[in-house]
């Protein structure tokens, strides 16, 4: 569904994607962990790197670059990228707030956290603020049930949330120049 013809899925007129030398070196290290005839195994970690390099989402050129690096068909990358929920297939805000809303978190007040962020940022889950700074997502269990309610932003877990803690976090992120990525590159 995500890859119907939409502006962000165009292959022409979109920013081309080229791995930086540094990223390429990391990709090669990862590929080296798998048997030579099974380098496709590196797909998931490589897509994480590509996503980080591409401002937090996978454009068609970014996925194509991964396919070329692994010497596989483009479709083999597309079918994987559309399967896993950590790959964003459209542009995201600079800081993506992913609030866990599965039962153990729900029992400890996750719905209130989501409602508070919605009110604070004026967006619904799946939305991005107009200034492009924040996206809000509700996600399924992140394995932090003992420290619920919680949210993930990039690779960091923010736990034992209260409305005050959420406000502090939002203010801190507003001032933070770098993007939060899943990888620490």
């Amino acid at each position: 569904m995500e890859h119907a013809n939409r502006p962000h899925n165009a292959t022409e007129g979109v920013a081309p994607f080229i791995f930086t030398e540094e990223a390429l070196a990391e990709c090669r290290t990862i590929i080296g962990r798998y048997p030579a005839d099974h380098s496709k195994s590196a797909m998931l970690p490589l897509l994480h790197i590509a996503q980080t390099e591409n401002k937090g989402w996978l454009s068609v050129p970014a996925m194509d670059a991964v396919a070329k690096l692994l010497q596989i068909q483009y479709i083999e990358v597309y079918e994987v990228a559309t399967f896993y929920s950590m790959y964003n297939l459209h542009p995201m805000g600079k800081h993506v707030l992913e609030v866990c809303h599965t039962v153990p978190c729900m029992l400890r007040g996750a719905d209130d956290v989501v409602a508070h962020i919605e009110k604070r940022l004026g967006i619904k889950p799946g939305g991005t603020t107009e200034d492009g700074l924040f996206s809000l997502k509700t996600v399924e269990c992140l394995g932090s049930c003992g420290t619920a309610p919680m949210l993930q932003c990039g690779a960091k877990y923010h736990e034992h949330l209260t409305p005050e803690k959420v406000d502090d976090l939002i203010e801190k992120l507003r001032m933070q120049p770098e993007r939060d990525n899943y990888t620490d590159r």
Binding site: R33, S41, L44, P45, L47, H48, F83, Y84, S85, M86, Y87, V139, E140, C141
Partner: peptide, 10 residues
Amino acid sequence: VHVHTGAGAY
């Protein structure tokens, strides 16, 4: 021993 990261699928 190698670490391999997944991408969010139960």
